[in-house]
Structures are given as C-alpha cells and as structure tokens.
Amino acid sequence: MTDIATYNFAYLDEQTKRMIRRAILKGIAIPGYQVPFASREMPMPYGWGTGGVQVTASIIGPDDVLKVIDQGADDTTNAVSIRAFFKKVANVAVTTETAKASIIQTRHRIPEHPLTAGQVLVYQVPIPEPLRFLEPRETETRKMHALEEYGLMHVKLYEDIARHGRIATTYAYPVKVEGRYVMDPSPTPKFDNPKMHRSPALQLFGAGREKRIYAVPPFTDVVSLDFEDHPFEVQTFDQPCALCAAESVYLDEVILDDHGGHMFVCSDTDHCEKRRDEGHRGHLAPQTMEPAQ
C-alpha cells in the first residue's frame, strides 16, 4: 500500500487516541466502571464494532499482531473487514492464531485457547448498561451503580426462574467485577463468563454508539450473579464438534439442508482448524479439506 500516508497511523488522529487511552486507563483503574468517552464517527455503521475498533486503534502499535473474530470465526464479514482495515491503516501484522496475537478484537466470543499475560482482548459492545432493560433512565442507572444498588439485577434473574424454571439468560449474563461494579460482559455466551474470571489477559470493552469504555484488568475477580438455590452454570452440549470432535467447547448449530439436517461445530474456527491439523476428526469431517467459499 503506497497510499498509507493519507491516513494517520491506525486511522484515528493522535488527540483522539490520547482521549481514548485516558478513558481506558480510567476504566482499568476502576474495574467494571463505564467511562464515558467522545466516540468518533468511524467508517462503518454503528453495531459493527465502532467501539471495539476505536479501542483497538488507540492501543495498537506497529509491532502488534492483530486477530479479529466475529462469533468465534476469523472468516466472517465483520472479522475480515476489520482485519483488512487495520492492515491498511496501521500496516500491522494480522493472524488468525490466538496464541500468536497480541491484540484480539472480538465480537461476542472469548477464544477457546487460553489467553496469556500480555495479550489484550477488545470486546465490541452494543449496550454497555446491564440494567438498561430494567431501568430505562440513564440518570437512575448511574446512581444505582454509584450507590451499589443492584437488587434490580436479581429481579431479572428471578423473572427468568419464575418463567422458565431456571436462569434462562444465556448471553450478556451479568457479572460482578472485583466485588463492586455489575457489568455486562457484552453479548458473549455465558459459556465464556468463567474465562473472564482472573484472566491473565487485559480485557477492554468499547461501545461506540453508547460512548462508553470499560475494562477488566488482568487477574480480576469476575463473578456471575446467581441465586443460592439456582447457581450459575454454563451451557453444556450433548455431542462433540462434528468436524474436530472437541468436547467442552462452545458449539454453533449449522443447518445443512432444508430437510432438518444440521450439525454442531466449534464456534471458534481457529481452535477447530488447529485440532483438525493435529488429526482429530469428527463424524462429519471430510477426508480431504475443501477450501472455504
């Protein structure tokens, strides 16, 4: 790319990056607290990761290696576009391998491969306020956070049990960070909640439309809310991945035809490919791999 000079490094101007870094530092200092920031217009629509992109743009350096996933997959539109974007505007190395990435921007999954110290996980967040659907007033929810009035969060879980006999919330499952702030872990499946607890990686959350940044520093307690008689539990799957035979990973259901045929495969494509390279085979795995469409 010879026209790289037409962009500032990583697209945003330096003043904006400083402003966002200040918000990030404040967020790290107060784990789980939603820091307002002056979100910029990005060359993509709201809801496509404008918050995550701004956070990534503010922390990325020329030596970083970037991985972008969308629902666990490296090869979907959102992931491919954002990866191409940073390749163009920051000229950084990109990868699909979790272990090789220094920054992983994610839409709604945490990779299956355990994260390590020094890695940064950047979440794209649509609605940062966990209390929003119960209390529509922002003035009131801010007050509730300030005064640690979180009874309402349990009202939601109570409603789940009253209606469904169990806590039916499966994604965006509310957590308490470091015993203080209740936080929305973005719409990740609750399967990933335990991975946030005392994770060695830094976790940053950016909500572009809602103009909020929050953070979970490494080795921070992240506890999912529950009732004593209805404890938190993650989803379980009664069959392994159809391609790589992996168990105790998060699976996506893929429809195969219009006669009800379907299969369950790893949502984390990198993890699945790694396992197949190592020789693991599920019951629907092709003998010779065909290139993706």
Partner: peptide, 22 residues
C-alpha cells in the same frame, strides 16, 4: 415495575437488601 411479574415486584426489596435464595 409494570413489566416484571407480581412476585418480582414484591421480591425486589428483599433482593435489594441482599436476599439471594430464590
């Protein structure tokens, strides 16, 4: 709270003061 059940309306204060047993 008009959009949550009667039971949750009554229970909200209990949950607010730390009751965690459904």
């Amino acid at each position: 709270r008009m959009t949550v059940s009667a039971g949750a309306n009554v229970g909200e204060r209990l949950m607010a003061i730390g009751d965690r047993h459904y």
